[in-house]
Design a protein around this nucleic acid. Structure first.
Length: 718
DNA sequence: ATTGAGAGCCAC
DNA sequence: AAACGTGGCTCTCAAT
């Protein structure tokens, strides 16, 4: 009650005072008595705070109000011995103290409350007893504990296995730094290997990709992965991250199972798990992972079945995990010599460019939008060359408008291009090479809301052609890649059933030329490659899929907004099935708050029900785009799964995927028949109402591909 | 030194 | 007033 009254008092606004009086009060407060802590809190919370800081500060205040946390007396006075006001910095320091105390208490409680069915296995006899249990198991949970989170540098220090039927969750430490007894690492791995490699024992994991890579480093090939709770959750709620959540195990079980769980970082910080010397602590933490993963799997299974997506998970998402593992493990050889050469060339060019820029603009940082903006618009008044109301930005679009009026701007555009290439690609890529000499980019199956992959460390999906030259197939192998030709427009045709579009594809005619000729009533010859009508139609169809408005479309095509509006209106009039399909998607989204793509996969769009018109409008654009983009992603995934089977038969390796492109490593001795087999999988795995088309390339170096005919012709000439 | 936000730009 | 969907990386700048 007392605390509550204090809080209420603190919320009352102070009586208004003149500035001079306020200043005096402030000085007095500083000189004699510290300001009341409630006043300090009021000021702190009035500051602009990041979400993380606000959350931490709230925790600190709650702990202090409850009397569980107090200021360090040393922080209450300054050097002169005068009272010091409570600051945000001090509060955040207190948060760390609080975390540390809570951390120790949590670990103590975890150990004290370790369930009887958590087994710490440190003797041969106990391991044998456990292995006998596993003989009766059809499925197990597995999880490896490691020295750290780097897939390619860290190593296993212990194995977690849950025996599902027996309801035993075991931790087998092998490489902890401790005086306590542990079984020898190699002995344990040998014993577990047959179980890990037995595909008839179904495996359950959370982000099992990491564990599978780790086991692979030990010479163990995991088989029978049946459920991954991270990826299953992404099918249940693809918006987890968008709404401030995460797909970390601990966050999911806390949120969905109501089991309070703290993340590894919260409990152990940056320490590797091998540094946990108390094996009872290790057991309490590690075995719980197996325990909650199993509980989460059961929860997800029930809910996926309820919404009819269990089959989708099992047939599309789950088998894709093995493909990601194979692609990540394969990686790329990076041509470091070429990176050095290209880097040196770019740097030399940049020396001259920078000198030129300095002569135009003086000593400013050309990478700083703030400094450039001041120079261009405040000093040089270059905005006089921009259309009325055009934003005073320093992005490429704006710079291109300014370029004809100032030589320095042209130079800056070139500077931008070269520094981007150098900094983001040419110089950054060699740093990503791992101990095994390869680049292993990460393919993230839960990275996008539509079901596409995302990629990072490095992002293999946004490499410019200039940089792709640095990525080389492993020795003796080539990159055999297939690119779905016009994948998304084909899905548009498929879903809408619009005859002109469908027939153009069925008859192997060019979609954009055909539609342009129809819409504008012109002979097909005038709508060929490079014609403005074809370009307009192409941009227009993409605009339909992306929900582009008339203003942006006008900008893209260099026509007036009215012309763009007319074009869109004509397009819909001529192709009513397209219009009807889009309208249907939007009505569905507004009514149910989601849309569905191929195989029923959902894109939840709660904003479709928003009463804010702009918010709802944004959801409307996403509705149609998500169906097309997401369905295309499903086609790519299913194709990858089939290609992996082809790889097994041929002795090839899955290499990478960039949304509508899939690539494998094949020996450079591959034949035309091999290529035909590859193409058949691309074309036939998922058939639509329109035929698929794919462009095949063969290369030793990514982005320097040959067509099939070119490749075999040069081979013949050798 | 590290963190977080914003600007800008690479890909499909 | 907004009017192009899905991502990740690098740099600046201001904060601690």
């Amino acid at each position: 009650m007392e605390g509550l009254r204090l809080n209420l008092n603190a919320l009352k606004p102070a009586a208004p005072k003149t500035d001079a009086v306020q200043a005096t009060v402030k000085r007095k407060a500083k000189a004699k008595t510290a300001e009341p802590i409630e006043e300090s809190w009021r000021k702190i919370f009035a500051m602009k705070l990041s979400d993380a800081d606000r959350k931490r500060l709230t925790e600190v205040k709650a702990a202090m109000d409850a009397g569980n946390l107090a200021r360090d007396p040393a922080d209450c006075v300054n050097k002169a011995g005068n009272p010091k006001a409570f600051s945000k910095a001090e509060a955040l320091r207190l948060w760390k103290t609080l975390q540390e105390a809570q951390r120790e208490e949590t670990l103590r409680q975890m150990v004290e409350n370790t369930p009887d069915n958590y087994w710490l296995i440190t003797t041969e006899a106990r391991l044998d007893e456990f292995l006998a249990l596993l003989d009766n198991e059809e499925e197990i949970v597995f999880d490896v504990e490691t020295t750290g989170a780097d897939t390619w540098e860290d190593r296993i220090v212990g194995n977690v296995i849950s025996a599902v039927k027996a309801n035993i969750h075991a931790y087998i430490p092998t490489k902890h730094v401790t005086d306590a007894p542990q079984l020898p690492h190699d002995y344990v791995m040998e014993k577990l290997k047959p179980i890990y490699e037995d595909a008839s024992v179904k495996k359950i994991a959370h982000n099992g990709k990491f564990d599978i890579h780790m086991l692979s480093h030990e010479g163990v090939t995991l088989r029978g992965l049946a459920w991954d709770t991270q990826f299953a959750m992404h099918i249940l709620n693809e918006n987890e991250r968008v709404t401030g959540g995460s797909y970390r195990l601990k966050d999911l079980v806390t949120k969905y199972l109501g089991i309070p769980s703290q993340t590894y970082d919260e409990l152990f910080g940056k320490a590797g798990f091998h540094e946990v010397a108390d094996l009872n602590v290790a057991l309490a933490y590690a075995a719980k992972d197996g325990d909650v993963t199993l509980k989460l799997r059961n929860f997800q299974c029930e809910h996926l079945r309820k919404i009819g997506l269990l089959e989708y998970y099992e047939q599309v998402e789950n088998p894709t995990i093995g493909v990601s593992v194979e692609m990540e493990a394969a990686g790329f050889v990076l041509d470091i010599e070429k990176a050095k050469t290209l880097g040196a060339e770019l740097k030399a060019e940049l020396v001259d460019i920078e000198e030129g820029l300095r002569s135009h603009f003086g000593e400013i940082n050309f990478n700083s939008p703030a400094q450039l903006s001041e120079k261009f618009f405040d000093e040089l008044k270059l905005d006089r060359y921009l259309p009325n109301g055009f934003k005073k930005s320093t992005d490429v679009k704006t710079l291109k408008l300014l370029a004809p009026h100032h030589e320095g701007i042209k130079l800056l555009l070139s500077y931008r291009e070269k520094t981007k290439l150098l900094g983001t690609y040419i110089e950054a890529l060699p740093q990503q090479v791992k101990a095994d000499g390869r680049i292993h980019g990460n393919f993230n199956q839960t990275g996008t809301v539509t079901g596409r992959f995302s990629s990072n460390n490095p992002n293999l999906q946004n490499q410019p052609y200039f940089a792709r030259k640095l990525f080389v197939a492993p020795p003796g192998q080539v990159i055999l890649s297939g690119d779905f030709s016009q994948q998304e427009p084909r899905f548009l045709s498929h879903f809408t059933g619009e005859e002109v579009l469908v027939n153009a594809y069925r008859e192997g005619r060019d979609l954009y030329s055909t539609a342009a000729s129809e819409l504008f009533g012109l002979p097909i010859e005038e709508c060929g490659d490079g014609s403005k009508y074809r370009k307009m139609m192409k941009t227009g169809i993409l605009a339909v899929m992306y929900g582009t408005g008339p203003k942006t479309l006008a900008d893209q095509l260099g026509i007036t907004e009215q012309e763009a509006k007319d074009f869109i209106a004509q397009f819909y009039e001529k192709y009513p099935k397209v219009k009807a399909w889009i309208d249907g998607n939007e009505q569905f989204a507004k009514r149910y708050g989601y849309v569905q793509m191929l195989h029923g996969r959902k894109r939840r769009l709660p904003e479709a029900k928003s009463r804010d018109r702009f918010t709802q409008f944004r959801a409307m654009r996403q509705a149609t785009n998500a169906i097309i983009q997401g369905s295309a992603a499903i086609q790519t995934k299913l194709t990858m799964i089939e290609l992996q089977k082809l790889c097994r038969r041929k002795g090839w390796t899955m290499a990478f995927s960039v949304h509508d492109e899939v690539a494998v490593y094949a020996p450079e001795t591959l034949t035309r028949e091999d290529v035909a087999d590859f193409e058949a999988v691309m074309l036939n795995t998922l058939r639509l109402d329109v035929p698929n088309k794919t462009d095949i390339e063969i290369s030793r170096r990514w982005g320097e591909g040959f067509t099939v005919d070119e490749w075999f012709k040069t081979k013949g000439d050798d």
